[in-house]
Amino acid sequence: MAFSSDLDQITRAAAGERQAVSALVNRYSPGVLALATRMLGDRGEAEDVTQETFIRAWKALPDWEPRAKFSTWLHRVALNLCYDRLRKRREATMAEPPEQVDMALRPDDALDQAERVKAVESAIAALPERQAAALTLCALQDHSQAEAADIMEISVEALESLLARARRTLRTVFMERSEA
């Protein structure tokens, strides 16, 4: 079970054992990076968030108490860092509105896979942040409903509501594009 092996690795990583540190990084950095990339829509910023998340994790390890799953805690830290960055981005946008990015699909709808993925990534990053988080955690990553709700510090019912709204918004966006 991942939880108990986490505890062992956390204890050894807290003692500075490189092998345990590498194991934690290899196990959790893809999920953290993916969450940040989907939330921020920017690979560079997502890497910064991932680094900041792990720096906080290393600081927390010596006093780590296994009340929460390490994975849940780590994703929650990453998510809150993303929220902070999105908030700062909004403040900057209010001060100086950026140029509108044209995300329309080509009329013939002959998108290759890379373009389609990019369009979906842009659409997810454009969602309200809590909807984007719910969709990323549940539909794009392998988090259980309970874990996703725990990461977002909301109930499963609230998570379901955010998911439904996110999927509805995306559907509308892509329907409008295909009709254009």
């Binding site: 990583a13 500075g16 490189r18 540190v21 590498s22 990084v25 290899n26 950095s29 893809p30 990076l33 993916a34 990339t37 989907r38 997502a46 890497e47 991932t50 680094q51 792990f54 720096i55 290393w58 896979q113 389609r116 993925v117 979906v120 990534e121 794009l140």
Partner: peptide, 19 residues
């Protein structure tokens, strides 16, 4: 259809070094 996001070797090394 969304592709996986994988950390680069440089990022992985930086994360390990930051411990």
């Amino acid at each position: 259809g969304m592709s996986d996001v994988m950390p680069s070797a440089a990022l992985t090394a930086a994360l390990i070094d930051s411990a």
